[in-house]
Design a binder for these strands. Structure first.
Ligand SMILES: NC(=O)c1ccc[n+]([C@@H]2O[C@H](COP(=O)([O-])OP(=O)(O)OC[C@H]3O[C@@H](n4cnc5c(N)ncnc54)[C@H](O)[C@@H]3O)[C@@H](O)[C@H]2O)c1
Ligand SMILES: NC(=O)c1ccc[n+]([C@@H]2O[C@H](COP(=O)([O-])OP(=O)(O)OC[C@H]3O[C@@H](n4cnc5c(N)ncnc54)[C@H](O)[C@@H]3O)[C@@H](O)[C@H]2O)c1
Lengths: 224, 224
DNA sequence: TTTTAATAAAGAAATATTTCCTTATTAAAA
DNA sequence: TTTTAATAAGGAAATATTTCTTTATTAAAA
């Protein structure tokens, strides 16, 4: 949340945090191209984010650019990765080895972004037979036992909406610090538990509403 | 974007739109339970959204509650579905029949939320052999031909980041109105094209940053 | 019937976030 | 070398969003 600037503590806006991985991803695509530097307007053109927004975002994480030149690409990538903790590998369990669960397990990029899924759980024994990246799969009844053996930080929920709260409670009871919820139902949790709702259905709602209204956004350039 | 209130046009905040499907999903879980009504504080307790926020959100779509009683659940569900256009089925193509693409194709709930995926495309011919829900699969080279035969509103991008812009350009050139982008790279598009970036990686970044900072949110109750 | 307490509504205030404006810097062009 | 134009930076302003406060309503309790 905080970044030091001189001595003052500045508060980093949540939307800024959400944009940082976008910058990171974009910068990877321009690294090793002809230029060593990229300017805010240069990024803005591709990402449809206002250039001063980009400069502000970078200033929150104490990144300074050079006038007339911009930002050094590789250095910026490094700073973003450090800030976002890509080099600190957090252990995770995933519950729900369904369609989405399998996609998440197979997505290797998470390892580069600092999350390692080390076990999967399902209530359906048939699902435990499948081999996905050699991931260890267990029945949900074994959750407590496994987490006691290997404590984890992140619990990923990919079960149907009606089961999500139950699994969340199980995770919280067993010391999970952060819950990543892919079900459409928001979860109840104590304030000390980090909850991230990735609601794919909310995204669809946004698209459908924009199609229906067919009006420009209030903040034209807002990407997230 | 707009809701009529008396004669004045009110602007609906984007975060409100994103919360509406969460209310909808939650209300489904309490429908057919003992109570006919639910109050804003009642919803707030489960969803960790401030009760006055909920009342405000509902007021934007002209939903009125009854003092001491709250909101009639079934009627509210209906209004939300109408507002979000769940009953208007929009046609969609999906490009990228990989791990995530398959999960999205298999997710039947989209049909209830007003989106029907009617064809899939990939560059890898092997992928076109797989049978997923009997969906018609084509080589990406046939995109233009297929869209001319059956115009669609929504193009879903589930290809690797480096290919995403190319596919977006193809979609735009062929009249797609809205692009739903699951790749980590934000896309460039003319202003009249609706772009929705569902950045799963941004969500992870948020979790990792909160784990690292271990500080409360500024807006405590913010769920999206 | 009267009182109490829970609630919605509406507007005000507080807070958060983006965009604008002005200045300073500096690479590249003249 | 001097000028020009592109850019970053920092603060101000504008805008957006959430939260608070007050008031009115009404179901339930007394
Ligand atoms: N697939 C998608 O593209 C998609 C899109 C939007 C939202 N979602 C959400 O993601 C979640 C998962 O979706 P899906 O398509 O993978 O569903 P799915 O039905 O394919 O998989 C759900 C899995 O959870 C398991 N499960 C159910 N109850 C369980 C329990 N108590 N403990 C452990 N495992 C349990 C099931 O056996 C199944 O394997 C759902 O909440 C869905 O709404 C998915
Ligand atoms: N799987 C996940 O859980 C996950 C998580 C976060 C982000 N993503 C993003 O979603 C996207 C898809 O991820 P995935 O895991 O399904 O990857 P994947 O590699 O499994 O699938 C990608 C598919 O796209 C196809 N493809 C490549 N170039 C193409 C082209 N030009 N035209 C048509 N098809 C083409 C490939 O043949 C492949 O089938 C990626 O951008 C990824 O970053 C996925």
């Amino acid at each position: 949340m905080t970044g030091e600037k001189n001595n003052k503590t500045t508060i980093i806006p949540i939307p800024t945090i959400r944009r940082l991985p976008l910058y990171h991803s974009f910068l990877l695509t321009v690294r090793d191209k002809e230029n060593i530097h990229i300017s805010a307007p240069g990024i803005a053109k591709e990402l449809h984010i206002h250039p001063t927004q980009i400069i502000k975002d970078f200033s929150y994480i104490n990144v300074k650019g050079r006038t007339k030149v911009g930002y050094e690409i590789k250095g910026l990538i490094k700073i973003l990765e450090d800030f976002l903790g890509y080099h600190i590998l957090r252990k995770a369990f995933i519950v729900g080895i369904g369609n989405l669960g399998i996609a998440l397990i197979k997505y290797h990029e998470f390892n580069n972004e600092g999350m390692e899924i080390i076990a999967g759980f399902d209530i359906d024994s048939d699902k435990l037979e499948t081999n996905i990246n050699n991931l260890e799969l267990f029945h949900i009844n074994n959750f407590k036992e496994r987490i006691n053996k290997t404590p984890i930080d992140i619990g990923i929920i990919a079960v149907p909406a009606c089961q999500a709260q139950e699994i969340a409670d199980l995770m919280i009871k067993n010391g999970v610090k952060a819950i990543w919820n892919f079900s459409a139902t928001p979860l109840s949790a104590p304030d000390n538990i980090i909850i991230e709702n990735t609601s794919i259905d909310s995204s669809l709602a946004m698209i459908k509403w924009k199609l229906h209204e067919n009006k420009p956004l209030i903040y034209k350039n807002r990407v997230l």
